[in-house]
Design a protein around this nucleic acid. Structure first.
Length: 742
RNA sequence: GCGCCCGUAGCUCAGCUGGAUAGAGCAUCUGGCUUCGAACCAGAGGGUCGGAGGUUCGAGUCCUUCCGGGCGCACCA
């Protein structure tokens, strides 16, 4: 096991545009067109990157020794973490790499290197030792490092540029379910990692929630309203108003109706064809716009959309802009995209074969990938020319039509979903000539406005969206192929830079365990009961609705809070319960890595113990309680650090737990960088938990308030303070608040 | 048939650029509340990392192949 610390990261840090730093969310700045900022080096760099400096001087020293003593240079030097803190803080396996080249035993090389290095130790390094078969283990100056952590020196994160995150994107025809929650929580957490805040410079960020308000799913609910319920525009209006007046959720109503309609289509074999035709006619009317069907659709889709925003707001999830498919259609984004694609030669009219009469695009998989192949071959000669026989474009043209090509425009002249998506993504990158949405206000959050697209002129002072430097699409893994098609289109058009900065933030679905499905009262076939999990289905009305889950979590938390804090006011208990519920839910969705299928079970999701959000929240509350009882503050404890003689304590046997706690608190920047680089928020969730575990361990080992030695007591308080600070930050990025008490 | 993902402790999952004795949580068992709150901590048992080859000083991690499971491969949207 090893880990990397950004403080020791050899990579150069990206330039920071100091001028863009804002501590508060401000729509004027966040959504402005990309500001090309001339990178400047922050003046604080020298002090902020002290730890990185340790490593740099360390590796530089070793390189110098290698060059002078053995006449070799290494491209990079690996730096690892020893298995136990007792062996040091850093481990260099450099001797292993050199063993063969120098025809010398690793341990002998390590011995020579250690001798040379010990003669001139870099600042912050206490000693060098040889360990195992030839590791160079480095011990740090614990007091020196701890003081820098206490002063909150940390490596900078972020850079210039505008990054667009698309997440949630629920069809506005039914209630959000647990699968949508995973999507929204992943996207929202990632957005928090990127965005500027008081801890980091970050990147400029825009959060978009794409609304497919003219799709077949909305059409289905419209069919239900108009043909199953026999409602018209006015009576649908009444229905929406009535449900609102009764405090009923319109999205729940649609959830049931959608399932009924889906069944109704095929319920009577004699009428199946007729009903399918009705469905199609409804869809076309809806796409066309300017008719009663479209108005009903807009009414219901907008009402459901408002509910989705409410649901997500319960979890602290907010959006900046809601682009709708209706505007992509009505503002003719596709026409501009089509012209561009033809100009760039990626879209062509098929004149033969099964796709005759369609405008098609070659699939991503059919593209020759020269660079990848040559790289693989150079690494491993055994992978050679067999797979180089993949058909090239030229060959395909000679051997007939590409039957595997993706149809973008149907033979009847209508554009497919992928076509619309290509147009939308060209717009995201500012590559769609002459096209932009109209923008109008839609929903007011406490601190900012959420805008929605319109085909009318924009509101005054509407911000500009689009023109992103990089984009992240939080879309489940089942849409892998369609996403790759869009990326392939960009690449094919020569927008390679954009294609490289297009991240399909893919994740696996949330399914139900058979037991959970049975508990909810669903019919589960014998076959399904044998499976590990069952896919949720909006069409079948099969799943756990997001609001139901939040309600259950809140109720469960409330029971606990009522038992523990009968003295607190009703409002306070409600607030704490909500914070715990959100903490449990968000952590649950974030603790799994993206491509793990979550088999949902209430037992796991409703747990507040073990590896959960509330566990971390509880650790923070404990730390806060110490300062309350001690009559001092975390800030005061940290401020006292420079004056304390802490080296003897940290270097002692009993100081190891303390030191481990300090070391772990310093890794937040690493984890954030790692989570961003890999698009994997789970790493941060894991870290928050480990930090809480480490703190709890320290908490039980040292009784702070009873400590009689004044120096020790202050050091203990500072340890609690730094742990509390970093746990709170880590949870903040996960979108989880720390309650006052719990 | 093709593409992508997964297979690690009884269960649910981590394991980043290949590194030292493969880790958590849950469950089970044992111990710890008159303490800064036990939504906690300490300890125990539990592993052929799906199988087989290969590369490497070193493989859960990289390559090949096989097995098992999931998802996706429409002129639907």
């Amino acid at each position: 096991m090893q880990w990397r610390d950004p403080l020791f990261d050899p990579r150069p840090s990206p330039p920071i545009p100091l001028g863009l730093v804002t501590s508060q969310r401000s729509q004027e700045i966040h959504f402005s067109r990309p500001r090309r900022v001339i990178p400047t080096v922050p003046s604080r760099k020298l002090t902020q990157t002290m730890y990185r400096t340790i490593q740099q001087s360390l590796t530089a020293a070793i390189q110098a020794i290698l060059a002078s003593k053995y006449d070799v240079t290494l491209a990079s030097l690996a730096v690892e973490q020893p298995p136990s803190i007792a062996m040091g803080e850093l481990a260099l396996p450099v001797a292993f790499e050199l063993a063969k080249r120098l025809r010398k035993a690793p341990r002998a090389i390590a011995t020579e290197l250690a001798a040379e290095l010990s003669a001139q130790l870099p600042e912050g390094v206490a000693s060098v030792e040889i360990a195992g078969a030839g590791y160079l283990n480095i011990r740090l100056d614990r007091a020196w490092v701890a003081r820098h952590i206490a002063a909150d020196r940390h490596a900078p994160i972020g850079g210039p540029g505008f990054r667009l995150i698309e997440h949630t994107s629920i069809n506005p025809n039914k209630a959000a379910h647990i699968g949508h929650l995973r999507n929204a929580i992943l996207g929202d957490t990632f957005q928090r990692l990127l965005r500027p805040d008081t801890y980091k410079h970050g990147y400029q960020v825009g959060v978009q929630n794409y609304i497919d308000n003219t799709g077949v799913q909305v059409a289905d609910v419209v069919v239900g309203l108009m043909h199953l319920e026999n409602l018209g525009l006015d009576t649908v209006q009444t229905l929406v108003a009535d449900l609102a007046a009764q405090g009923k959720r319109i999205d729940y109503y649609c959830w049931d109706l959608y399932a009924r309609v889906s069944q109704w289509y095929t319920a009577d074999p004699d009428q199946a064809a007729e009903r399918k035709a009705l469905r199609l006619a409804t869809l076309h009317a809806l796409e066309q716009g300017g008719n009663e069907i479209a108005e009903v659709a807009d009414l219901i889709a907008t009402a459901v959309l408002h509910r989705h925003l409410e649901t997500m707001q319960r979890l602290g999830i907010e959006y900046d802009f809601l682009p709708r498919e209706s505007e992509i259609l009505h503002l003719h984004f596709w026409d501009a995209a089509r012209q561009l694609m033809i100009e760039k030669g990626v879209l062509y009219l098929e004149t033969e074969g099964k796709n005759k009469g369609c405008w098609v695009m070659r699939r991503a998989s059919a593209e020759p990938r020269h660079s990848e192949r040559s790289e693989a071959e150079s690494r491993n000669p055994r992978i050679s020319s067999q797979d180089a026989s993949a058909t090239t474009n030229a060959e395909a043209a000679e051997t007939g039509p590409d039957e595997d090509a993706k149809v973008i425009v149907r033979s009847n002249g209508t554009v497919t979903y992928v076509g619309k998506d290509i147009a939308y993504h060209l717009w995201k990158f500012g590559l769609l000539p002459g096209k932009d949405f109209g923008y109008t206000k839609f929903h007011q959050y406490p601190n900012h406005m959420c805008w929605i697209s319109t085909d009318s002129p924009s509101d005054e002072h509407a911000p500009a969206f689009g023109h992103a430097d990089a984009i992240y699409n939080v879309i489940d893994s089942r849409q892998n192929d369609p996403q790759n098609n869009v990326i392939a289109a960009l690449r094919g058009m020569g927008f390679t830079n954009e294609a490289d900065r297009y991240t399909h933030f893919s994740y696996e679905m949330v399914a139900l365990t058979p037991r959970c499905a049975l508990d909810l009262g669903y019919d589960v076939s014998e076959e399904d009961q044998k499976r590990a999990y069952i896919e949720v289905s909006g069409r079948k009305g099969f799943g756990v609705k997001a609001d139901d889950l939040i309600d259950r979590l809140t109720t469960a938390a409330r029971t606990e809070v009522d038992n523990r804090h009968p003295d607190l006011s009703d409002d306070d208990r409600a607030t704490i319960s909500k914070q715990i519920a959100v903490g449990a839910l968000r952590y649950f969705m974030l603790r799994y890595t993206r491509n793990t299928v979550i088999a949902f079970d209430f037992k796991d999701a409703l747990s507040f113990e073990g590896e959960t959000g509330p566990y971390v929240q509880y650790a923070i509350v404990r730390a806060a309680n110490i300062f309350r009882k001690a009559g001092t503050t975390a800030e005061a404890a940290l401020a006292a650090m420079p004056t304390l003689d802490i080296a003897p304590i940290l270097n002692s046997e009993e100081g190891t737990t303390l030191w481990e706690t300090w070391l772990l608190t310093s890794r937040l920047t690493t984890l954030i960088e790692q989570a961003i680089a890999t698009s994997e928020p789970a790493y941060l969730a894991k870290y928050a938990f480990q930090l809480a575990q480490q703190f709890n361990n320290f908490y039980h080992r040292h009784h702070i308030l009873n400590e009689e030695d004044a120096t020790k007591k202050t050091l203990y308080l500072a340890t609690a303070a730094t742990a509390q600070r970093e746990m709170t930050r880590a949870l903040g990025y996960l979108g989880i608040e720390a309650p006052e008490r719990m």
